[in-house]
Amino acid sequence: MKKVIAFLIIFIITGCATPQTYNPNNIENNKLATVKTTAGKQLLLNDNYVAWILYIYDSKNNEITKRNLLSTKINEISLPSGEYRLEAECVNKMYSGLPTAVFLLEPSKIYQIYCDVTKDKDFLGITVDSKVQLKIRETE
């Protein structure tokens, strides 16, 4: 029974986070930009932050992911080149943040978004995570 419950919890956390495609103009798939996260690879939360894509908006501020609060978070999506605003959830075992950033994606490139955390000290002098930003890098 415990194995079934553990499986269901992992399934709910990761959802059916399969790769998605947004391609309204039917561009050849090899000319789409792909944005990935490492969130789908990490089954349990630990001290490292992982990024889940929540929403993506195009340059006209149209929400293109068409997800609602109950739908699956995105860990990979392919889309036409252009400027996009990504809203993500950066989460580890203790904290979470909801950063937003604007990125210019080029055709046929693969990107990885990640959470960049700034550390600071609280009023007791204890080091804490004070700010999280969404960043992007090109991968192979």
Rank of each mutant, 00 (worst) to 15 (best):
D120P: 09
V50N: 02
I110D: 00
I110W: 01
I113D: 00
I13N: 06
L45C: 08
I5M: 05
E106K: 14
K73T: 11
S78P: 00
N75F: 03
T72Y: 11
V91C: 03
I110K: 08
L69R: 11
L70C: 12
V4W: 07
E140C: 09
S108M: 13
D116E: 14
A6I: 07
V50W: 00
E89H: 03
A51P: 05
E63A: 03
K36T: 10
N62P: 03
V117D: 15
L32A: 02
L43E: 09
T127Y: 12
G15F: 08
R137Y: 09
C115R: 13
P99L: 13
G15L: 04
Y22P: 05
F103L: 13
M1F: 08
T72K: 09
K41N: 10
L105D: 09
S108K: 12
E106C: 10
I13R: 06
N46C: 02
S96H: 14
E28R: 13
E83G: 06
N62E: 08
E83T: 14
N46V: 01
I5W: 03
D122W: 07
P19A: 10
K135T: 10
F103E: 11
L8S: 09
S108W: 08
I56A: 01
N25P: 14
A88L: 01
I56V: 02
L134W: 00
I13A: 05
G125F: 04
K135S: 04
S96K: 12
N61H: 07
R85S: 15
D120H: 15
S108V: 09
L54R: 13
C115L: 13
E83H: 08
E87P: 11
G82K: 03
A6K: 05
T37K: 00
K135N: 05
L86G: 09
E138Y: 01
V91T: 09
Q133T: 09
G15Q: 02
Y111Q: 00
A88S: 06
E106P: 06
T65R: 05
I9F: 03
A33E: 04
N62Y: 03
N23T: 15
I110C: 02
I53W: 04
D120I: 14
G15T: 02
V35A: 05
N62D: 11
N26K: 07
I53Y: 06
K41E: 08
G40R: 02
K131L: 06
S59P: 00
F11T: 15
P19S: 13
N48K: 03
T127N: 08
L98T: 15
K121N: 10
K93Q: 11
D122N: 15
T139P: 04
V50I: 08
D122E: 09
A33L: 05
E106G: 12
Y49N: 11
V117R: 15
R67D: 01
Y84D: 02
I126P: 04
